[in-house]
Each structure stands twice: as structure tokens, then as C-alpha cells.
Amino acid sequence: MLNFNLNGGDVSVDAPGDATLLSVLSDDLKQAGPKFGCGLSQCGACSVLIDGAVVRSCQTRADAAVGRSVTTLAGLQENGQPSVLQQAFIDEQAAQCGFCSSGMILVAQSLLDRNPVPTEADVRSALNGNLCRCGTHNRIVRAVLRASEV
């Protein structure tokens, strides 16, 4: 059994310890958010937070989460409402397909936690490891900056 905290609640999963954290989150815990994009830590679509730090869940063993706190996209909501950052993404319409959004938002949240007032260059640098194919980069940057101004 793998025991850890997911989005503020304790969970217990019957899965192999060497399974990817992504597969446990997606298929055992039915989280809509972290995505399989490459399985190689190259695109960032699978990004989640463990104890507030970004990890690529496609290349992280599930047992690495044991005893720790995992945050997925749904876990950022505050009282069932979109968080400030999520609302900023909605307000800026900062998506086309939205497949990369979960990873983008979690990496951006981690940036804002460390650096509440980032410059545009800080945001671009923080998101450089997250790939977007629709060409929505500038809207995503605007959304993060907008959230930092709230």
C-alpha cells in the first residue's frame, strides 16, 4: 500500500511502488490534470507538486510520494472555487487545447510560491521546460503575471 497525502486528504493506493506516480494519480486516483505527454521529462505536461516542489510525475516512482503531500491541478482550488492563478488563466483565456495547462499552472504556482512578484523574464524562464504546441505562450505568461498582481 502506498500512503500519502493528495490535495489535503490522505490516500492509500494498492499499486506497485515502481509504478510511475503519473499512472497512480491518473488511473488509480482518477485525477484529471497531470497528463502523459512524453514519458521522458521533456514536456512538463505531467508536472505535479510534492511538498510544494515541482516533479515530473512520468519519471517519478510512486513510492517517492509516500508520506509526503502531492498537489495536482484540482488541489489548487480554494473552497471549491478556482484559485487566483487558475482564475487568471480563465480570465486571460490562456489555453487553446488545454492539454499542457495543468503542468503550466502547477509550475507557475511553484514559481509564485517562491517569488510572488516575478518579472516577465522570470515567468518565461520558469516555464521554459514546459512545452506548448498551440502557441499560447504569451497568454500563459500574461496569466501568471496577472495572478502575481492580485
Binding site: S26, A32, G75, I90, Q93, A95, G98, S101, I105
Partner: peptide, 21 residues
């Protein structure tokens, strides 16, 4: 008009075919 699909995609409620369970 804001896109009808975007809010659920930003909060982890929308399910892509990849996320069906």
C-alpha cells in the same frame, strides 16, 4: 464570449480521452 471548455480544463474537472477511467 469566453470559451465554454476552458474553465473545467483549468481546475482539473475536464477529462480528455487520455483521462477517462
Amino acid at each position: 464570449i469566453p470559451r465554454i471548455d476552458i474553465p473545467d480544463k483549468m481546475i482539473g474537472r475536464h477529462r480528455f480521452v487520455h483521462e477517462m477511467t
